[in-house]
Design a binder for these strands. Structure first.
Lengths: 250, 250
DNA sequence: ACAAAAGTGTTATCGCTACACCCATGT
DNA sequence: ACATGGGTGTAGCGATAACACTTTTGT
């Protein structure tokens, strides 16, 4: 792709500030790009993060976000999907770009820019792949994070901040639940993310009044109390409401 | 910094997926990194974007976001500040990272990843620098965007979406106004960003009830109607309210 | 019978909307 | 005097918080 790149001192990129006049353009093509995935799930009333244990230096033995270098001819979104798929077996899940991190000294081997991605997955769909590194994968509670390699702690915290904002304004919480869920589960999920308590009656009235949930006519089974109705998120309804100016808010 | 980088096939970075086993690590250090700045101001009841006209190919003659390549030893936030300072003479203004853009084919010269930054400036503080390229700098209304080079239109639109969300949840609108402003100006600003109308009385009651504005005891001058009080944003008050669990919302 | 969580109804209050009205200044 | 935007008060409505209560299942 760039084998024929000019290495003259001309301002080929057209940047206006003269910052790199007289500096060969090749000198700027020294960066590597990686993606790091913040994969979140919901389990046992808590938000859980998928981390791997590093087997090599630097930061050997520490927990880290799953990630990888991006190939020079690979779109970075594709790379993030690749990491996610390799690790969890899942694709077609919620996957969104977060921030980028590029401190000069963040990686000992050279200038590596990393782009954070975050993914919300339904834990019941997750089956760790039977591969050599699967043994190193663990879920940790986001309220009890271990020490993480590189600047991964920053990445996670910024994602969680972002999630707390987004979950209030967009119906993405459902990504963390099974297709069919009870209102109780939904409420507990919101309570876990936002670290609050809601009144049961009021929570139900609010969410049901939005007409975003479809009653599946099924009931919970194998619970030692009154079984709850199972609902599913009605994406079609949401999209048609959006067009009419509806805005989700919790 | 990376002149001593190993080019063995070892998995030096410790990535777990085997994606690049047998591929020399050097092959991954072929990216360039740039920053592109979405510099927004508020003038004549509209949100304005600072663009430059490109003098060189590709996209010669088109309008583009001001940006530059990042030096291999430069932090990208620093690069964004550099671009902003070179162009507007301003520093210490609101400058935040937006998304990154890395489509394989987004730049003809090679694999250039760009990180979008956005900045909110008070137009009354802006003085275009007297430099050779200053003549190519223009403000355009964000509702009447010209064709933009590269994927810059995407960048601008994502920043504006982001701004509309953020301005409702954080008191950043003030960055676009002079230090001292009237409630009328503040209301017009919110109306311009969110593309709505507010009731004057209600807007005032809401914003004043937050106790975030300091009455400067000064009045507007040279207006042909009753002069308005001038307020300033009380950052101290905001920060101490934050600690008590206050959350801004408009 | 009891525990445990599902599910519902009622009331009081708070906040927001809509709208009417007055005020100070320049022309 | 009038035009213009600044600035304020209030009545009514709707959403929400708080809380009590009933229902259905398993043990």
């Amino acid at each position: 792709m760039n084998s024929s790149r000019s290495s003259s001192t001309e301002d080929i990129l057209g940047h206006q500030f003269g910052a790199f006049y007289k500096i060969p353009i090749d000198k700027f093509f020294q960066f590597a790009l990686s993606v790091d995935c913040v994969i979140l799930g919901y389990h046992e009333n808590g938000i859980k993060l998928l981390v791997i244990e590093r087997g090599t230096e630097p930061h050997k033995g520490k927990k880290a976000l799953p990630g990888d270098l991006v190939y020079p001819t690979e779109d970075m979104e594709l790379a993030a999907n690749r990491v996610l798929k390799d690790l969890t077996g899942l694709d077609e899940v919620y996957l969104t770009q977060s921030k980028s991190y590029g401190q000069v000294d963040r990686h000992p081997i050279g200038r590596v820019i990393t782009v954070g991605y975050y993914s919300l997955i339904s834990v019941d769909r997750y089956q760790p792949l039977a591969s050599s590194w699967a043994a190193n994968v663990v879920w940790v509670d986001v309220n009890e994070l271990p020490e993480l390699a590189f600047d991964h702690k920053n990445i996670v915290h910024e994602v969680l901040d972002n999630l707390r904002e987004t979950v209030r304004l967009q119906p993405i919480g459902f990504e963390l639940l099974p297709k069919k869920f009870t209102l109780g589960q939904l409420q507990e999920l919101y309570e876990a993310i936002l670290n609050t308590k809601f009144d049961k009656a009021n929570f139900r009235k609010k969410i049901l009044s939005m007409n975003l949930l479809k009653d599946t006519k099924e009931l919970q089974t194998e619970v030692s109390h009154r079984p709850a109705k199972l609902f599913s998120f009605d994406k079609k309804a949401y999209e048609s409401l959006l067009k009419k100016g509806f805005s989700f808010e919790m």
